[in-house]
Computed example of a mutant assay.
Amino acid sequence: MGEKGNSLRVSETEGEQNTLAEVAIEARTPPNARQELAVNRARTLVADVSNGNRITVRALPTLRPVAEFTTAQPPVGKDGKPELLQFRFLDDDRFLTVSGTRVEYWDARAGRALSQPFDLGDLRLTTRTEPNYAVGPHREPGHLAVTVQGEPVVHAIDLRTGRENEALRVDLGYGLVAAAFLEDARYASVMTTGGMMEVWSAPPGKPAKRVAGPFGPLKENRFVWGATGGSGYFVANLSSVQFLKADDPGYRQSYEFGEDQGFLAAIRDGRALLRSPASGGVLGLVRLDPALWKRHLCNVVGRDLTDDERGSLPDGLPTQLCPS
């Protein structure tokens, strides 16, 4: 996005970081600085919002317009400002928007609704007067996972009917804020009150149990987590990025920074992240690719490191970095 939210740009992340495409956003109200873009699983479409509730879907990497549609207007929050519209791709084409408690289900390429909208408040998932909901994909095809902050149940809502399938409920313990199933859907990552993260084993038809965590506390709006395939997941928070597996407690791959970072976004496998030092500095892209680091080092230095140079670096470097 441009500095004022009035343009959208696709740039290379390697080489000379050339701009591949750029478009101006014509809107009365540009996107909020805290509003994230959404990219589909195949990385062929990107969606953004303007005017509070206008979704524009574009092709990648050209940014050619594909579809445009208008969602329900977000409600005004307690601070007197409109709440942010929540939106995401559920796969390559299916698209979800949540405006306050109103849920809408779309075909992103055609720009049309796939079912009637429904309101989470009408489902009577809780007796609380002002509940906070979290909404995301469910492991059961055609369903959403909906949680009520502080309550233990992950509810499964049928996207076609807007009704709960009570047989698919999963209990993940009190203090639950949000849950997301991993690719190996027997496992779920869980955000709990206090900004902590846990991982639970939740095979269908069996009681769920915690298998990892809690990790944290996670720094609000400055951490990133994601699923990496199978039972794998990553957590980028404070000064480290950790790669772990829910079915292998002994597996851990860690990358440590010299100081705390503010992590803003990551690609799906977590191997490239947008971050800036928490102490202040320029936002930049870091790639967690030791082979790439090695090639860049050898191109710049043109030789192996001396013993003195190695002494100032962490342990574990290969004996030979650059070919002789």
Results as ranks from 00 to 15, higher is better:
Leu20Cys: 06
Gly194Ile: 04
Ile157Arg: 08
Ser201His: 12
Asn6Ser: 13
Gly216Asp: 03
Val286Leu: 10
Ala42His: 08
Asp92Trp: 03
Gly232Phe: 00
Leu37Arg: 06
Gln116Glu: 14
Phe118Thr: 04
Pro141Tyr: 03
Ser115Gly: 12
Val98Leu: 06
Gln261Ser: 03
Gly2Glu: 07
Thr192Met: 07
Ala265Trp: 10
Thr29Val: 10
Val49Lys: 07
Trp225Leu: 15
Asp158Gln: 12
Asp307Tyr: 07
Thr228Val: 04
Gly226Phe: 01
Gln261Pro: 05
Asp289Ala: 13
Lys81Glu: 15
Val241Ile: 14
Arg9Ser: 12
Lys219Thr: 13
Val148Met: 02
Leu168Ala: 10
Glu83Phe: 00
His155Cys: 02
Asp91Asn: 14
Pro318Met: 06
Leu20Lys: 14
Thr29Phe: 09
Arg186Asp: 14
Gly262Ser: 11
Asp91Tyr: 04
Ala185Glu: 13
Glu14Arg: 08
Asp119Ser: 11
Ala272Trp: 03
Gly281Asn: 05
Thr161Asp: 00
Gln17Trp: 13
Glu164Met: 08
Glu83Ala: 11
Leu285Ile: 07
Phe118Met: 10
Gly262Met: 09
Asp48Thr: 10
Gly173Trp: 02
Thr56Met: 07
Asp307Pro: 14
Ser231Gln: 06
Leu144Ile: 00
Leu264Gly: 09
Arg102Ser: 14
Ala278Leu: 12
Asp289Leu: 10
Phe87Arg: 05
Val224Gln: 01
Gly205Trp: 04
Pro214Arg: 11
Arg160Ala: 14
Pro141His: 07
Ala291Val: 15
Lys294Gln: 13
Thr126Asn: 09
Leu144Trp: 02
Asp122Asn: 12
Pro204His: 04
Val170Ser: 08
Asn237Lys: 00
Asn221Arg: 11
Ala27Met: 02
Ala212Cys: 06
Gly258Ser: 13
Val153Lys: 15
Leu264Thr: 09
Lys206Gly: 04
Val211Cys: 08
Ala72Gln: 12
Gly281Gln: 07
Glu130Val: 03
Gly150Asp: 07
Arg34Asn: 15
Val146Met: 12
Ala59Cys: 10
Gly316Cys: 01
Asp248His: 02
Gly111Arg: 00
Thr97Asp: 06
Leu244Thr: 02
Pro65Met: 04
Glu104Val: 01
Asp184Gln: 05
Thr97His: 01
Ser240Arg: 05
Arg139Gln: 06
Gly15Asp: 12
Ala47Asp: 03
Leu305Val: 07
Glu14Asp: 14
Thr44Gln: 05
Asp171Ala: 12
Phe69Lys: 00
Ser276Cys: 06
Leu123Gln: 08
Gly142Ser: 05
Asp307Asn: 03
